[in-house]
């Protein structure tokens, strides 16, 4: 039993890393990985919200009617985001300013809604908390990996501390928007090459799995869904995948 709890916690870190394997929460990952400090604060804030919302949703799982569950989850998550926002505004005003709109946008972070939908509504409180913690730390880990690459090579520093021998060899583009896409692409390619084979299929396409609207559009990935509804003939691979989902 203990082993089982540990596996719930550890799963989010590597085997089902929300960012690099499940490809959820792309927006904050790209936007908040320009420096290690930003990545750390984003990761911790999201983990906090994820653990709390997972616990509350798990407690309420029998009370929330199935048909209106998504709006209910959004309210719970938005509530915790507001708490974190107010706490940061009061005690860490500099970080609050640095994170700007992305702090509020934790509400629409697919990881949090995704975990509520996939895990918290089917499991008990302790398991949900552990799952939230594991997934949150996995998100933090992926953010830190990206931020380290971008800050060390792009700015010649680590967490604000200058690395002297890199001062003449900065690649400033890495700290800007294009660098974010590039580093993220290369990281996923590396995970594809050496990482667990289990999630390989998921990494190939951008999945809607954690998307808040997934329950509305039938949980097929966006492109396929649009093709289906628009009347286009899905090719063989799509049909197969759809059957898998059904």
């Amino acid at each position: 039993m203990k082993n089982n709890k540990l596996s719930i916690l550890l799963r989010g870190l590597i085997a089902e890393n929300p960012v690099l394997v499940l490809v959820l929460g792309t927006c904050p990952t790209l936007a908040q990985s320009t420096s290690v400090i930003a990545a750390l604060s984003m990761g911790i804030a999201a983990t906090l919200v994820l653990v709390c919302s997972n616990m509350v949703i798990s407690v309420l799982r029998k009370i929330i009617p199935d048909t209106v569950r998504i709006p209910c989850y959004i309210v719970v998550i938005a509530g915790f985001v507001t708490v974190v926002q107010l706490l940061m505004q009061a005690y860490l005003p500099d970080l609050y300013k640095m994170m700007g709109v992305y702090l509020a946008l934790i509400v629409v972070n697919c990881i949090i809604l995704g975990r509520a939908e996939m895990f918290a509504r089917k499991n008990n409180v302790i398991d949900s908390a552990l799952d939230g913690l594991g997934m949150g730390l996995g998100f933090l880990l992926a953010l830190l990996a990206m931020a380290t690459i971008r800050e060390v090579f792009g700015n010649g520093s680590f967490a604000g501390i200058e690395i002297s021998f890199l001062a003449d060899y900065k690649i400033p583009i890495l700290t800007q928007a294009p660098g974010g896409f590039l580093v993220f692409g290369i990281l996923i390619a590396i995970v594809n090459k050496i990482g667990p084979k289990k999630g390989a299929e998921k990494r190939k396409n951008f999945s809607c799995e954690g998307c808040p609207s997934a329950s509305l559009c039938g949980k097929v990935s966006c492109a396929e869904n649009c093709e289906l509804v628009a009347g286009g003939e899905p090719d063989a691979a799509d049909t197969k995948k759809e059957e898998g989902n059904a």
């Binding site: 490809v23 583009i173 800007q176 928007a177 294009p178 660098g179 974010g180 896409f181 590039l182 993220f184 692409g185 290369i186 996923i188 390619a189 590396i190 594809n192 090459k193 990494r203 190939k204 396409n205 951008f206």
Partner: peptide, 22 residues
């Protein structure tokens, strides 16, 4: 190459499009 197929190559292309907007 096999390991960049799908999402990675898409992201790398997005990086170049984003560069163009500079």
């Amino acid at each position: 190459p096999k390991s960049v197929q799908g999402l990675p190559i898409t992201l790398i292309a997005a990086s170049i499009v984003s560069l163009a907007f500079f």
